[in-house]
Design a protein around this nucleic acid. Structure first.
Lengths: 108, 108
DNA sequence: CTCATGTACAACCATTTGGTTGTAGGTTAG
DNA sequence: CTAACCTACAACCAAATGGTTGTACATGAG
């Protein structure tokens, strides 16, 4: 997983509206305009947020009739989940050690 | 954990240099200039990256003599780790279901 | 004391971001 | 066919990002 890919994923997650969109479409796939209806901002603004999520390949779009259905991308979400877990693990590990470092015997 | 806080954390992680700085200071606390030495960019640029990490309270600084020592913030890192894990879990769960949704009986 | 080191911070710049409005193109309903 | 609806996309704007250089100020070394 390249740095650029990871950048795009974290970037995509760094906005509450986008995090909410992900939640929504993971629960139920929805058309762009249905999604847009949930937020105060303009339709175009929501389109852009979706585009950011697409660039990170966290969601995909699928044309269905005259609507465009947005759905979560299972493969990418799983990969992202693994990435986040990896960071979580490392941080917990290190965080636990920082407190101990003075009292415990420095092993490694 | 507020939306703004989460924004700041993901934002902080959306840059490879900053992710690297975190890795470094979690392994060993280091002065700002020592850190700056590891990267191509200017000293001031690294200072700014550190400021972003501080704003997300992922790292802290501690004056020691004339140097400023940057260290990981165990408490915040643990909280961030839990956050990332939570996302990881939800995503894995949902991702697993998306594939099944057509074959299984729709429960809920 | 003097000088080199380590840091902070301001000013500036180009690019990206997050938002807007407006226009245009498909697609379905009647 | 015509009208309504859904979407795409361009143009524009303000603010934030990520970088630079330059200046100023502490602090420790000699």
């Amino acid at each position: 997983m390249s740095d650029a890919e990871i950048d795009r994923i974290f970037q995509a997650l760094a906005d509450a509206t986008r995090r909410d969109i992900i939640r929504q479409v993971m629960r139920t796939e929805q058309s762009v305009s249905t999604l847009a209806g949930n937020y105060q901002m303009s339709f175009a603004a929501v389109q852009k947020h979706i585009a950011v999520l697409e660039r990170a390949s966290l969601v995909g779009k699928e044309r269905r009739g005259r609507e465009q259905i947005v759905h979560g991308n299972p493969e990418a979400l799983r990969r992202a989940a693994r990435l986040l877990d990896a960071y979580g693990d490392i941080w917990r590990q290190r965080a636990d050690r920082i407190g101990d470092i003075l009292s415990e015997s420095p092993k490694e």
